[in-house]
Design a protein around this nucleic acid. Structure first.
Lengths: 237, 237
DNA sequence: CGGGAGCTTGAGGAGGATCAAATCATGTGG
DNA sequence: CCACATGATTTGATCCTCCTCAAGCTCCCG
């Protein structure tokens, strides 16, 4: 639970304009003149895995653009258990609810080393008219992602869910498949930690994935797709 | 699968301004002058249960405000099964993705008799600068609802899920608890139709709910909360 | 070297899926 | 008005999956 390490703070002028993923982010579509209207610092941070961006119930004063890595959004049930309700990767915005609510509704934690930009809500509010299209896109991404988690990762057997997770991960992080802790896998799939662990091991034994390095996997895509779609054993057509 | 019955079509001037739920809807905050700028017809429709608002993949040209009733948003998995990923009730907007995508991403179906307003996308786009705050609110509602479905309705045992559904329904529809078909309960909770049916029957036998009329239930709230939080039998402290 | 956290594995039992059949509600045509 | 077909709901029996509780294991760090 180390604190985020702050690398730098900008006022938008140069840094945001030359951001290498500018096409993806909230500020896509802004012009030079708009950037010079930013008078609050935008922080560029590097988060080690496990660092907490914000907690559920904190006052929502910042939006966070994910530049690299992977962030989980967690909520807890009345009975105590935690569920991961969304995964955010490159280009996604964490804490969008700042635009419509006073407090954060999730706890946001880095699952991998992540680079993020911390943008004061006031900056986004001021630029909002120019950002309208991008705001729609970012909200839309948020809905699509959450519904993908619901649809793909909470339907079917544990085996199917883990297989779909393996297929999903490289698609959203665009890198080699980097799995996270079994507790997090469990909180995402709605199963117990033991089942998550057992099922990952099963898929390794079945040759559907190969663990190249600790928690780094090479995928047997066709095999995983077969499993994800529900067939338990090889079927010769 | 009857077609929606169209009741009336307005140009916004009088009808929207005097809408009885205006405080809730997308157009909250507009002034008289704004309404007179609406030059495309807004249809006011009454949908019997089972009617389809739009289908996944249809071109997204309208947004729909729910004035009364309950709408499900369905998506299907590659393996064929359907999941309900959101429930929309009074004040919610169906088809928000029209603002950010070209095609609908769900099939929207009325679960109860529903009154809805069909608003051309062009109207919303034109008014968008004035609707910014409301658009944020509606997107936010959409995310919050979906995540509530994920968190509350796909965690824990079938018994807990059904109990939580019973508690959730009157909260979102603000009427007497009106349950829908067992197939839909199953698609919402991520269980089979048989399990949904069995579990509802169990809760009836256990006295947690009483079926006052077909699919209309009176709730034993404290009992349901106890079940929802995970305790199986009475525990004397 | 010892301790701790995360991961894996085992045995047992509860719960849900599956397949099948019976019941009930509704509407249709004779 | 009744016989019948249709579809939704309920119930039953069996099997398999996953949860639970428990113990070992591995790796890292003090």
């Amino acid at each position: 639970m180390r604190e985020p390490e702050i690398e730098a703070a900008w006022h938008g002028l140069t840094a945001c304009e030359s951001c290498e993923i500018r096409g993806l982010v909230l500020f896509a579509g802004l012009e030079s003149a708009d950037f010079s209207g930013i008078h609050l610092p935008i922080q560029d941070m590097w988060l080690p895995p496990g660092s907490v961006l914000y907690r559920s119930g904190d006052r929502a004063e910042y939006l966070y653009t994910v530049r690299e890595g992977l962030i989980k959004l967690e909520q807890s049930l009345s009975c105590g258990t935690n569920r991961i309700v969304n995964l955010l990767s490159q280009g996604h915005v964490s804490g969008l609810e700042a635009m419509a609510a006073e407090y954060y509704e999730h706890t946001a934690v880095a699952l991998q080393s992540s680079a993020i930009c911390k943008i004061p809500k006031a900056v986004v509010v001021r630029l909002a008219p120019k950002l309208l299209g991008q705001l729609m896109k970012k909200w839309h991404e948020s809905v699509v992602n959450t519904q993908e988690c619901l649809r793909e990762l909470t339907s079917g057997s544990a085996r199917q869910r883990v297989a779909r997770l393996f297929l999903l991960l490289p698609a959203i992080t665009k890198t080699r498949c980097h799995l996270f802790g079994r507790d997090d896998v469990a909180a995402l799939l709605g199963v117990t930690t033991e089942t998550a662990s057992r099922t990952v091991s099963d898929l390794k034994r079945a040759g559907a994935v190969v663990e190249a390095a600790p928690n780094i996997f090479d995928l047997n895509v066709s095999e995983l797709e077969r499993i994800a779609s529900g067939k338990t054993a090889l079927e010769h057509s």
